[in-house]
């Protein structure tokens, strides 16, 4: 494992911790899209089917379990927690995420490495992860004001993707075999989706001002 891959995993982990901290400390999930969180839970559940069939390392296994457990915990909090669920921005979190699921599944049936149950779900999870941030970005755009922790959450999530791209470039030059093209292309699409957010994030950081997205 190289430093970029590790930095990517760590920023991914930090993003989840920031989100849990926000929900725990403020007992509020305002500004957080339940649709995006549900999509991530689905992404991890379908990608890590290999937990039962392939062992890669203790690190990989633990991280997979952490991602599955944390994403389910967040969805549970936003749906079931007596206090937290009251702050959910239900009326502006209206992105039709079922279309993303349907589109990713159709693409996975058409474009995959092998026509097996596990491979199709792996490809599905890669495509869905690339698109899963969309409901969150739309929600932030609609609400305009972004609170600090929500801004940090999306920033770290974007940083995770950027580090993964550096990791693939590094692996391309240092290893005989490289990452998979399905993952590479989807990863580039996914990172590109953050470009707009990053732009406004850096402007607000430079001006030391609150993060605001244009309507």
């Amino acid at each position: 494992m190289n430093i970029f891959r590790f930095a990517g995993d760590m920023t991914h982990l930090i993003s989840i911790l920031v989100l849990l901290l926000k929900i725990y400390a403020t007992k509020s999930c305002s500004g957080i899209s339940l649709k995006t969180q549900e999509l991530y839970a689905l992404v991890f559940l379908t990608r890590y089917l290999d937990l039962f069939t392939d062992f890669i390392s203790v690190y990989n296994t633990i991280m997979k379990l952490v991602f599955i457990a944390s994403s389910l915990a967040i969805v549970w909090c936003m749906r079931m927690h007596r206090v937290v669920r009251r702050s959910y921005d239900k009326e502006i979190d209206t992105f039709r995420h079922y279309f993303l699921i349907l589109a990713s599944f159709l693409l996975a049936v058409l474009v995959h490495e092998k026509f097996t149950f596990q491979e199709i779900f792996w490809a599905f999870s890669i495509y869905l992860e690339a698109l899963a941030i969309l409901p969150q970005l739309v929600l932030l755009q609609r609400s305009g004001n972004v609170d600090n922790l929500t801004g940090q959450y999306v920033f770290f999530l974007g940083a995770y993707r950027a580090f993964y791209i550096l990791n693939w470039i590094y692996r391309y030059f240092t290893e005989q075999h490289f990452s998979r093209w399905i993952a590479c292309l989807s990863g580039i699409v996914q990172t590109a989706l953050y470009a707009d957010f990053f732009y406004y994030y850096f402007i607000s950081w430079k001006n030391n001002a609150k993060l605001q997205l244009p309507a």
Binding site: R5, R171, H177, R180
Partner: peptide, 10 residues
Amino acid sequence: CRQSPQKDEL
């Protein structure tokens, strides 16, 4: 990208 033997990324 060429094929890697294992899905070792998360």
